[in-house]
Design a protein around this nucleic acid. Sequence first.
DNA 1: CGCCAGATTGACT
DNA 2: GTCAATCTGGCGG
Length: 196
Amino acid sequence: MGMKLKAVLPQEFYLGDPAYVAKKLLGKVLCRVYQGKILAGVIVETEAYYGKIDPASRAYRSNGDLTKTLYGDVGKAIVYGVHGKWLFNVVAHLPGEGGGVLIRALEPIMGIGEMKKLRGVENVFELTNGPGKLSQALAINKSFHKIPVYLESSPITIRMGLEVNDIAESFRIGVTKDLPTPLRFYVRGSRFVSKP
DNA sequence: CGCCAGATTGACT
DNA sequence: GTCAATCTGGCGG
């Protein structure tokens, strides 16, 4: 099927408040080149994370590599392991601050057969409806940490996609200490959003 | 070098 | 609804 990929988003796209960037990322396309094949999906759910001020952030109680990356160049991937799963994030923040966006769910559009193999699941709604699941479906692991998603040559990129008009929001999922602001955003009505 | 919390998932009562 | 497997990063000793 001749679905055509659009342009990669420029690095400046990620130079903004994490919540603002998280909302803007809905409808964009996460694209992975895997063994010569394209695996891609429309981003339908995101969460914003901040730096030292955010009790749910990895930067809250540390000064390690994750913190440095969160405060570093925007547009780079952060791949972090939790509970044995890989979570895919992109560095996004205002100048001089720290933050990032967690990609929580996709609507698969290309390479669905390959995603089914990687996940070991047939149901298309179960392929990428969660941060750990989409990493497995796109064969994302720690080796993608710090890769720029704004370079055409990267094995993982984020591209222009669809217009999203109806954005819903909620508090973040799974965090033990949240901020008093809704920082989870998703496409209202999408069947590909993660389950609460 | 050992310990342990955690931005999860899926299997089970 | 509950619960535990899973494994890395960060920190204390």
